[in-house]
């Protein structure tokens, strides 16, 4: 979002390069001052590193089973014990970082691109376009998260890419609805009317005056939904429609672990904690970005 806005602004407005740079620098400085956001960013970088170097960090192959040695308690050999197939829980959590990041980030990007396009277009143009587009959004919204996921995956078949697509489609109408409301008010505002009066093109008005004004909301929503997307993976796993086995995913691990909630709580708590950390990090960064990007906050 941020780069898109700036790039577009830079191209069409022929802003002096110096000003663009200083704008970025200002944003970076503001971000650096935001302690929680920095902490979040560091956490995400750590998660990224864990995901990239999973094969090196994980003490065991996450797939190797030893069913006879299942449900082992934590030990020096297996810090977090073994799961229902005797696989090393720690190694599976480490590998699960990959899937969590992929699902969380990619599905939100897909959802945001589709959703914001729908919402802004409908809100800005109004009339028939509004009627038709928001009808589409209403239709998409009438499918509850899980059901959209369930139906899309049932039709396409299971798989990580399909899961990402399914979650993205679930998120899109939410972005559209949230973007739509403010746009209705924004397009009536003086600065937008002024821009229209001096003959600025519609894409330029949307890029320069509409998008920056809803960017904050969208990024907060994006951070929220990155969290929700990772959680939705867990929910789909709960009803048996997550990423196919044997891939290690936190959602599947939590689901399988809850069966032993009463006697082996670590089995679900450990991946649950990993989930918590990831969600936490994305939210901190989302909040920080919001502060930085909000033109009025500076």
């Amino acid at each position: 979002m941020a780069t898109a806005t700036h790039a577009a602004g830079g191209n069409t407005a022929k802003l002096p390069n110096k000003q663009l740079i200083s704008q970025r620098q200002r944003a970076w400085r503001a971000f650096k001052r935001n302690k929680p956001a920095l902490v979040g960013a560091v956490m995400i970088i750590v998660l990224l590193l864990v995901a990239i170097f999973a094969p090196l960090i994980a003490p065991y192959d996450p797939l190797t089973q030893s069913v006879i040695n299942k449900f082992q308690p934590p030990s020096r050999a297996h810090w977090l014990g073994t799961d229902d197939y005797g696989r090393d829980v720690l190694s599976r959590i480490i590998w699960g970082t990959r899937v969590a990041l992929q699902v969380g980030v990619l599905s939100v990007i897909i959802g945001a691109v589709i959703g914001i396009t729908l919402g802004v277009t409908a809100g800005y143009f109004g009339g028939k376009i509004d009627a038709v587009l928001m009808r589409i959004v209403d239709i998409m919204l009438s499918f509850p998260d899980l059901i959209t996921g369930l139906l899309v995956m049932a039709v396409l078949g299971a798989g990580k890419t399909k899961l990402i697509l399914a979650i993205g489609l679930t998120i899109a109408p939410r972005f559209a609805r949230i973007a739509y409301g403010p746009v209705l008010g924004l397009k009536e505002k003086e600065f937008v009317e002024a821009a229209r009066a001096i003959g600025q093109s519609t894409p330029r008005i949307i890029n320069k005056h509409i998008l920056p004004n809803i960017a904050g909301e969208m990024i907060v929503l994006g951070s929220l939904w990155t969290a929700s997307a990772i959680r939705l993976e867990a929910s789909l796993s709960f009803i048996g429609l997550g990423v196919p086995p044997p891939t290690a995913t936190w959602g599947q691990m939590i689901r399988d672990g809850t069966v032993r909630l009463a006697d082996l709580p670590l089995l679900s708590l450990a991946p649950g904690t990993a989930l918590l950390i990831a969600v936490f990090a994305f939210n901190l960064v989302g909040d920080g970005l919001r502060d930085v990007l909000d033109p009025r906050a500076n």
């Binding site: 969290a227 929700s228 959680r231 929910s235 649950g272 918590l276």
Partner: peptide, 8 residues
């Protein structure tokens, strides 16, 4: 509250 799945 946001991070924990409802079933959990």
């Amino acid at each position: 509250g946001l991070s924990a799945p409802a079933f959990y």
